[in-house]
Design a protein around this nucleic acid. Structure first.
Length: 852
RNA sequence: GCGGGCAUGGCGGAACUGGUAGACGCACCGGACUUAAAAUCCGGAGCUGGCAACGGCGUGCCGGUUCGAUUCCGGCUGCCCGCACCA
């Protein structure tokens, strides 16, 4: 029995595709195009199973669309800047560039072994000077267009590493690496004005009909639009006022205090003369922003002794507190507290004995305001001109009155904040700006780009290596020529990934970020595939960046990704030894009794939950090993079968075995066919036996089914349909009735249908069947419409809703006749017994239900 | 706390707009081939009663609409995800 030689075959076809340049996207902009993109990988060192799943999914789409005649662009690149390279540099004394490019080389090799239909000629890494030079140009374009600005802002500061931390890098109030208590500090940072697009980013979500609802909803919540009012409270005994934002202007008459953030300018001003307040503010700033802390944190306030005037009741004075629960980053950093109708305000008022004044009453309910606030709908009371109005009407009326008295105005507030892109790191795109004492901030002149990273840097001391570099930042001001300094911050790596998809359209272009004709043709990406973990940040930033590139004349679209698919994660059982240490799957052997032992020591191993593969739990399987022993097709098949791609997938040895067996049986079907196959191109015999006819129906129904499965990303069903077709071809063994011809037709179609999923074995089958042109260059098969409908149909017959028989009837038989036939069935008669049918429901070609 | 999702055999899952629940596979059981094993091939199988023919029960739980509900509606329960002192 000949076995399919996976290694030789896969190498052969991969080489042939490369030689024939089979997957190059054509720069002929008159062809119908299809742009398939996977989220490009970070070159961490090795390909992991998540990559394999991601690229398999996009590869099926790419190959399917290519077979349909589209000019397909499916590129690959590297999201290559980032902190791990600096950590490697510090720990292993290897330069970040060397570490990164060597990882890229390894991973490129691993990816190529997957047999992906990628146009490798377009590959680049974001750390290539040619790429980040163009990014610097974009940065300057954005700066000139007023989309980029620099401002002082509060940041998470790690006092040990001397660096700013992203919110995600603060764990329980401590730096993720140093473990030091994170402080809040004010620092000058570069920002992209994403909030200016907030409303458009929100509204346009409605046009993204090929995005998962979940992702759109997450972005909607992230943008967090809320309508309300901004209003000023005049400070008693001073000439200034405090501005607050509220979504409940209707409850203004229930106000009993004002609270400002610990970082509010007024708090800072007062703290300068008040040590106790300064201590309180320091305490607030020390507390991290982590959820765990916030949940247990008590509301705390510091009475400033100041009071403000109520805007509608001037004689009423409200105390002003500095409070730990008011965020400087949202609204105006100050609120008015209405304890009767807000949970936090109620907590605060209870603690500090402030009045609770109910102003909204529900009609029927008797609410205990001392115990809890009331936040539902109702009618306004004790509120002067608002009395008797509903909450909604009162909001409008209050805003109208504020505007009339020039005390405030209706406004829209977003949760979304401007995108801070400054990072005090080395391995990133340098922000191309120069600080001049005389001229202020100046962009680097275009002819001086790129601002390249210096090679000679040290990672021994904490803080930014660029800032420590002895000479790099010294430069002359492009405006006045005097000595000036470079910006030493680099860009957040999310900037790099915000436009790479556009660069793939013209990756070698030297003088511009993108070629207009190329991006106008290729963009938007027709199908983007990646993990849900990027549902908010990356996808939102890329949407913003595209708008910014539109405004600066680089592209003419706003939405970069027309279709988005978010795949599930790969899971695996986890294992621990007797000492509670995690073990890799390859260190564990499952025994016949179901118990697991260590391969070497034979010590018992406890089998844990099936969890997302992660290095920390060691429940990972390196794809390279699977591909070496079973081949890329097996790995790909496993990824596609069983679990729908949006769901999590459990990696199991048994599942791999099943995939492997199917690959082999596919090869066997063509290499050792049950019947001698007629030569390629033999015309269909005039007379086919009934089994041959029936098999042809299955063949053509499968074409239709798999085509639809591919369109809908139902790859698990596509695999099932392919296997059904394989099973349907098995019984063909009668050469006299045209079955050999049908077998050939079935095998050819099968090879074509599995081609996008299992490209290597499909090519091997295709060649074995006598074809000389590679399968990947042939067109997708068409189903013969006449074979998609049956002349006879199986009708289910129910008695009182219970299935009692199935009968074969001619298609589209009149209801009356179907009814008669159904009633004559023996099983139906038995089920009816003595009772007479009272009513019969006939659904044509489907079901007859007899109600007795 | 707010927002969203999911729940089908031992397991992953299928069932298009309400119409034969369990396709396809994994694991399992039996048989063939083999000195033996592997590989391969054939067959079985939701649970349950029965030698069988045949019957009962079954899509997390309770209820509703319908001739008919995995599918629609209301109410629970359990898991999962996102956001969160957002004013």
């Amino acid at each position: 029995m000949s076995r399919y030689n996976v290694q030789a075959n896969e190498a052969h076809w991969q080489q042939l595709w490369a030689e024939r340049n089979s997957f190059a996207a054509k720069d002929d902009y008159t062809l119908p195009k299809y742009y398939v993109l996977s989220m490009f990988p970070y070159p961490s060192g090795r390909i992991h199973m998540g990559h394999v799943r991601n690229y398999t999914l996009s590869d099926v789409v790419a190959r399917y669309k290519r077979a349909q005649g589209f000019n397909v662009l499916c590129p690959m690149g590297w999201d290559a800047f980032g902190l791990p390279a600096e950590n490697a540099a510090r720990d292993n004394k290897v330069h970040p560039a060397e570490w990164t490019y060597s990882n890229i080389a390894t991973m490129r090799g691993e990816l190529k072994r997957m047999g992906l239909a990628i146009d490798w000629s377009r590959e680049f890494a974001t750390c290539d000077e040619t790429y980040y030079k163009q990014q610097q140009k974009l940065f300057i374009d954005f700066y000139r267009a007023g989309l980029v600005y620099r401002k002082e802002s509060w940041v998470n500061w790690d006092p040990v590493d001397h660096t700013v931390l992203a919110n995600e890098q603060v764990i329980d109030g401590r730096g993720w690496r140093s473990g030091a208590l994170v402080e809040k500090r004010q620092l000058a940072q570069w920002f992209f004005k994403i909030t200016a697009c907030a409303d458009d980013l929100l509204a346009a979500l409605g046009t993204l009909d090929r995005w998962p609802d979940k992702v759109r909803l997450m972005q909607e919540n992230w943008i967090g639009k809320s309508a309300g009012a901004k209003l000023r409270f005049a400070l008693n005994g001073r000439s200034d006022s405090i501005e607050v934002f509220t979504t409940r202007p209707d409850t203004l008459f229930g106000a009993s205090f004002i609270a400002v953030s610990a970082n509010h300018p007024l708090a800072a001003e007062l703290a300068a003369k008040n040590k106790a307040l300064a201590a309180f503010i320091a305490e607030c700033n020390r507390t991290g922003t982590s959820e765990a802390i916030l949940e247990t944190l008590e509301k705390q306030g510091f009475d400033t002794g100041l009071t403000v005037q109520h805007p509608f009741v001037p004689e009423q004075a409200l105390p002003v507190y500095v409070a730990n629960f008011v965020l400087m980053e949202y609204g105006t950093g100050a609120i008015f507290g209405c304890p009767a109708h807000d949970e936090r305000d109620h907590d605060f008022a209870t603690k500090y004995n402030l009045p609770i004044r109910p102003v909204v009453l529900a009609d029927e309910l008797d609410h205990d305001f001392a115990a809890a606030p009331y936040t539902g709908p109702g009618t306004l009371h004790n509120s002067a001109f608002l009395d008797g109005l509903s909450v909604e009407a009162a909001k409008q009326a209050a805003i109208a009155q504020l505007e009339k008295r020039k005390l405030g105005h209706g406004t829209i507030q977003y949760r979304l904040r401007d995108w801070g892109v400054s990072r005090q790191r080395y391995w990133g795109c340098p922000i191309p700006m120069i600080h001049c004492q005389a001229c202020g901030v100046q962009p680097v002149p275009e002819q001086d780009l790129p601002v390249a990273l210096p090679k000679d840097v040290s990672f021994d001391q904490p803080g930014s290596p660029l800032a420590h570099h002895p000479t790099w930042k010294q430069v002359n001001c492009p405006q006045c020529g005097q000595a000036a300094t470079r910006e030493t911050d680099t860009c957040d790596t999310f900037v790099d990934s915000s436009w790479y998809f556009a660069r793939f359209c013209s990756p070698q272009l030297a003088d511009k970020p993108v070629d207009k004709a190329a991006v106008d043709y290729w963009l938007p990406v027709d199908q983007y595939v990646g993990g849900v973990e990027h549902a908010i940040l990356h996808l939102l930033y890329a949407r913003y960046f595209t708008r910014a590139m539109h405004k600066t004349g680089h592209v003419k679209i706003d939405e970069p990704f027309a279709g988005l698919f978010t795949q599930g994660m790969i899971c695996h059982e986890s294992y621990k030894d007797e000492n509670g240490k995690w073990l890799y799957p390859e260190e564990v052997e499952k025994q016949a009794d179901g118990c697991a032992v260590h391969v070497k020591t034979r010590a018992p191993v406890s089998v844990g939950r099936v969890e997302v593969m992660s290095k920390s739990k060691k429940n990972v399987v390196p794809p390279a090993r699977i591909i070496e022993s079973y081949g890329a097709d097996t790995a790909r098949l496993f990824m596609l079968s069983d679990s729908p791609p949006e769901r999590d997938l459990e990696w199991t040895e048994a599942g791999v075995g099943g995939a492997w067996r199917y690959i082999n049986s596919l090869w066997r079907m063509v290499s050792e066919p049950k019947l001698p196959l007629p030569p390629l191109g033999t015309p269909r015999p005039d007379a086919l036996g009934s089994r041959a006819e029936e098999t042809r129906r299955t063949i053509h129904r499968t074409i239709a089914a798999i085509s639809q499965d591919f369109e809908r990303f139902h790859f698990n069903k596509a695999v099932a349909h392919a296997r059904e077709l394989s099973n349907a071809l098995e019984p063909l063994d009668n050469a006299a009735t045209g079955e050999a011809w049908v077998l050939r037709e079935g095998l050819e179609v099968l090879a074509q249908l599995i081609g996008p999923m299992l490209p290597h074995v499909a090519e091997a089958m295709w060649a074995e069947l006598g074809h000389t042109t590679p399968l990947c260059e042939t067109r997708w098969p068409k189903a013969e419409a006449s074979l998609l409908v049956n002349e006879t149909v199986t009708i289910a017959v129910q008695v009182n809703g219970k299935l009692r028989a199935t009968i074969m009837l001619p298609r589209d038989l009149p209801a009356k006749e179907a009814e008669t036939q159904a009633l004559q069935d023996a099983a139906v008669q038995r089920a009816l017994g003595d009772s007479k049918p009272r009513k019969v429901i006939v659904v044509p070609n489907k079901i007859v239900n007899i109600v007795a």
